[in-house]
Nucleic acid binder design. Sequence first.
DNA 1: GTCTATAGGCAGATAGAC
DNA 2: GTCTATCTGCCTATAGAC
Lengths: 194, 194
Amino acid sequence: MPSTSPTALSTAERTLDVAERLLQVRGFNGFSYADIAAELGVTKASLHYHFPTKAELGDALIARYSSRFADALGTIDRDTTNPRDKLDAYVNIYSEVLRGDRMCLCGMLAAEYETLPHSMAEAITQFFRENEAWLTNVVAQGQADGSLSNGVTPSDASQMLLSGLEGAMLIARTLGGLPRFQSSARRLLEILNP
Amino acid sequence: MPSTSPTALSTAERTLDVAERLLQVRGFNGFSYADIAAELGVTKASLHYHFPTKAELGDALIARYSSRFADALGTIDRDTTNPRDKLDAYVNIYSEVLRGDRMCLCGMLAAEYETLPHSMAEAITQFFRENEAWLTNVVAQGQADGSLSNGVTPSDASQMLLSGLEGAMLIARTLGGLPRFQSSARRLLEILNP
DNA sequence: GTCTATAGGCAGATAGAC
DNA sequence: GTCTATCTGCCTATAGAC
């Protein structure tokens, strides 16, 4: 039996859950296998059974995070049609992360970029590319239907939204918190007012 | 004699120079006394003579960085009168940091915030406060003389500029580099077009 | 001020019993 | 899958000679 009840999580999943939070709060170089093990009540050796090296754990964390993010974008596309509503929903993803006192996982890793294994570095870049591609699409839609200003190219707008939101999260954790983040996010979106 | 020639730097200063670069590239948790010692050709013990603990080294790094940043803002105030020129010069400070393949020192530390000694955390918050105070002043001047839009409060504008620029640096190091940063910075400033 | 030497702890990682 | 036990290496930091 891999689990003790229908709702129980495997050790691998619980490891990812704890490691994900530690990574988003303290950074990849700011937590250890010992931290995860203590929180789960298992030994470090058990963790190495599921994730032999920390680089592999990191790869798994980015893969799961990117996958969930992509799912969330898919959900937005299904649930909303108005491009402005899509952007509001996009910002809301970030708000919920910050509400948990966390930084965006890939934003955190972007800071530590130069210290990371190559596979992780590439995966982070890919995460940002995918986000920008989605945002570019939404902005282009909004410009086509007139709901968004066409004073900026969709590509430029998506770059500014992505980096603006990541920066607002970064600073808000040290100064101003969620209210400040949401205020900055609103200002960013106003740029696209027609 | 504290130095061997009029232009020679003390070990303490050279330590700060190397540590500063390592911190801006790899983060506070991403370098060690051994890294600095190897680069300077001295022993770790020598470094501990000048900076007994890493927390004290970190305090000194933030203090020097903040002081230089404040000097740069003072120079801008002396050399330019037009608020738009001041903002351009402000962005240029960031561009030069990124040109050296570095992240803003305090932006990097903002990511590692939760792992830092209290004295460092407080100093980072103070750095951001001072930057925002300066920016708020410049925006207010520009609104008064009509060179900047008054569609946003100076406080909101300064928050968005600071976090937007920090975020643009953060992302540009993994995707797009300096050209992308400068493009995003230009877009941010356009928000203040009258 | 800088060195050698070393302490004490924690990091990531592995071997092998159960 | 999880454990005990252990390895090796690096970390911050200190003592004491020069």
